[in-house]
Design a protein around this nucleic acid. Structure first.
Length: 680
DNA sequence: GTAGGGTTAG
């Protein structure tokens, strides 16, 4: 059949098929005519027009039902591009795989397909596409190579990215910026900065996109000065200060602790969105300013902008930090009403419950999330571990293995730490052995710390020592400390003395570490060494972080510092402390004054112990909550052995559950016993 | 017609 006259008029037709002028109805009418006329070339153009106007199914079926023509690959490309614009990367890949053999993919096709793989993080799928692209002669194509760079960067294969990059005959700004961003996300910010330098030596200056990566690199190195000079570079080059560039600057300044500058840049933004707020909020949380972070979060909530998931994550982190269970709960409720519960939010909520001492709520949340990713599993395993549930952690780990998700280094760190806290030696040895052999994860420093701690504490000091000697990398102080405390507990004093020497070579300033060394020398009756260690403790204690305890009462946070006299209820608190003290003594409590590292009279030492911040916080909690209420105390340092004893007695006297989170883990005290079984 | 950018969880 002959084409209708207007269809033969190519100029007119092109106007119709051009995206802005064609309505879907026009395209559909045309479609009918073209089918009858069986003009494959025009059908392809029509399909492209369909794709551009969002009618992707129509585009695909048009292409699939008409024979391939020289122009059909452009139409297929338009369809692929439309899918990736819409974020449907797996559909894009499906379309790519379903290409009819006659439609020969070109540079654009491969670029789009590889880009889809990159977004999906699907290295395996990309590999065969790359082979086909290279066979078709596109191995030096700037676009194909850039897509490959992006792919490898996103999948953490920077070695491959570098190989492709080095093989490129010509590198444009996109290629450089992909490398900069790649090194940043691989956690190699110094190399990212090196890339930027090389780029400039190559004669190219940065644009807005490149600079975002460079600013991120400055944020990651913590080099505030470099960050400021990069900021200057951006201003000097007259770049557009769009919301992304400015947000990255806010983030960089906040991460580097330059809160005033971060605030200033933030306040001067002509337009900010939820991400800009989140950047500032998370900067505060990460630097230990949870209070300010929550203030900002409240300000965001009343600013008219809807806080997004990122802002909620930071707010939850702040709650977790300070043990604000009530606020955390209400944020959880808000998320359920207003946002979709994704894995990141779920993990943040779980972690908040865990850190606020509410193991049950954490478990409940974990059970409610239907599609769990590895991070969520890891968080739950870690939660069991810190709450002293080694067996539960192991059971979860085994359940995880049945899902087909592969555990990673963090999974094993949490698992081994859980097993170590619960003293599960056989299980610990078993899984430490398997992690490399069966799961291909080479044990790192943190894994060694757990397993050596576990072995040494369980009396297998020689075995722990052998394992330490077999380490591929130079052991850090943490490994030695784990071994030393095992030596002390199991009276392996000769070995312990050698290790104590080793530890002193690190010139530790941590009072806990020095106390351990001193106690070991005392056990070995090396009194001059004891004096030496005590002197180091005295010198370093001036630099020591002061210990404090937090307790939440009716949604309000209260902070106690040792010997703090400023609290309005101080007299009542001290009365309770004294009353408990005398009752405890009747039950057999003996203050362990060896935990006071000052030369004082015994009586003074005893009194000092009873004024430890956790004791004050507990007394305050008892004073202001009704019987039966659970008390959750958050301590920034580790609970001392004496307080641990004392709280066991207190939990029996007052018939309350008392939960203490210290710098390492949780202790659930009830009926005169602790969940850690005094094994910590 | 195609490639690169900000916050956030263990």
């Amino acid at each position: 059949m002959r084409l209708p006259a207007f269809l033969a008029d190519q100029r007119r037709l092109r106007r119709v098929l051009y995206p802005s002028s064609a309505t879907l109805a026009t395209l559909t009418r045309l479609h009918a005519l073209l089918i009858v006329s069986s003009s494959n070339h025009l059908l392809a153009s029509l399909a492209a027009a369909y794709a551009r106007s969002g009618a992707l199914d129509a585009a695909e079926s048009t292409l699939a039902t008409s024979p391939a023509s020289p122009s059909s690959i452009a139409a297929w490309n338009a369809l692929l591009a439309a899918h990736s614009r819409g974020g449907s990367h797996s559909t894009a890949l499906r379309v790519f795989r379903a290409l009819p053999p006659a439609a020969r993919p070109d540079s654009t096709t491969f670029t789009l397909a590889l880009s889809a793989c990159a977004r999906l993080g699907d290295l395996a799928a990309a590999e065969s596409i790359k082979d086909r692209a290279f066979e078709a002669g596109y191995s030096k194509d700037v676009f194909v190579c850039s897509a490959l760079l992006h792919l490898y960067s996103r999948c953490g294969a920077m070695g491959d990215a570098v190989r492709v990059f080095d093989g490129m005959p010509r590198r444009d700004r996109v290629a450089w910026s992909t490398m900069v961003a790649g090194f940043v996300s691989a956690g190699r910010p110094v190399e990212a900065l090196g890339m930027f330098r090389r780029m400039r030596e190559d004669g190219l200056e940065g644009d807005e996109v490149v600079m975002v990566g460079v600013v991120q690199a400055c944020a990651a190195t913590g080099d505030a000065q470099m960050g400021a000079s990069v900021h200057g570079y951006i201003l000097r080059h007259g770049m557009r200060m769009d919301v992304v560039v400015t947000t990255s600057l806010v983030d960089m300044y906040a991460k580097n602790g330059k809160f005033d500058v971060a605030r200033q840049v933030f306040r001067m933004m002509p337009y900010r969105n939820a991400v800009s707020w989140s950047a500032l909020i998370s900067g505060f949380v990460q630097n230990g300013h949870a209070d300010e972070a929550l203030d900002l979060f409240r300000e965001l909530s009343t600013s008219g902008l809807q806080p997004d998931s990122g802002a909620h994550v930071s707010a939850l982190l702040a709650c977790a930090d300070m043990g604000l269970l009530k606020l955390g709960k209400s944020i959880h409720g808000f998320i359920l009403r207003r946002l979709e519960l994704n894995c990141i939010l779920g993990t943040s909520i779980l972690d908040m419950y865990s850190k606020c001492g509410s193991l049950k709520s954490a478990q409940k949340l974990f059970d409610r999330v239907s599609s769990r990713d590895l991070v969520l599993w890891n968080a739950m395993i870690a939660c069991c571990g810190t709450h002293g549930r080694g067996h539960d952690a192991l059971a979860l780990f085994q359940e995880l293995n049945k899902t087909g998700i592969n555990p990673d280094h963090a999974t094993f760190a949490s698992l081994l730490s859980a097993l170590s806290h619960s003293g599960l030696v056989e299980e610990g040895k078993f899984w430490f052995d398997r992690m490399g052999k069966e799961f291909g994860i080479e044990p790192a420093e943190k894994h060694y710390v757990c397993i050596i701690d576990l072995l040494a504490r369980s009396g297998l000091v020689e075995e722990a020592n052998d394992l330490l000697a077999s380490m591929q990398t130079e052991p850090t102080i943490a490994v030695w400390v784990a071994l030393l405390s095992g030596c002390l507990n199991n009276k392996k004093l000769e070995l312990g003395e050698n290790i104590a020497e080793k530890i002193l070579e690190f010139q530790p300033e941590d009072v806990g570490v020095l106390a351990l060394v001193s106690n070991l020398y005392a056990a070995a009756k090396k009194w001059d060494k004891v004096r030496e260690a005590r002197k180091l403790m005295k010198d370093s204690s001036s630099k020591k972080v002061p210990g404090y305890s937090l307790v939440e009462v009716r949604g309000m946070r209260h902070m106690f510092v040792m010997e703090d006299q400023s609290h309005p209820q101080l007299q009542e608190i001290l009365k309770i402390v004294a009353k408990l003290d005398s009752e405890m003594r009747k039950m057999g409590y003996v203050p362990r004054t060896e935990f006071v590292y000052h030369d004082l009279e015994e009586g003074v030492k005893e009194q000092l112990l009873s004024y430890h911040s956790e004791r004050l916080a507990i007394a305050f909690g008892l004073l202001n909550t009704s019987p039966g209420t659970r008390l959750v105390i958050i301590k920034n340092l580790r609970v001392c052995g004496n307080c641990h004893d004392a709280i066991k007695y207190i939990s029996k006297i007052v018939d309350r559950e008392i939960v203490v989170r210290d710098a390492k883990r949780f202790h659930h005290f009830k009926d005169g016993a602790c969940s850690c079984g005094d094994y910590w």
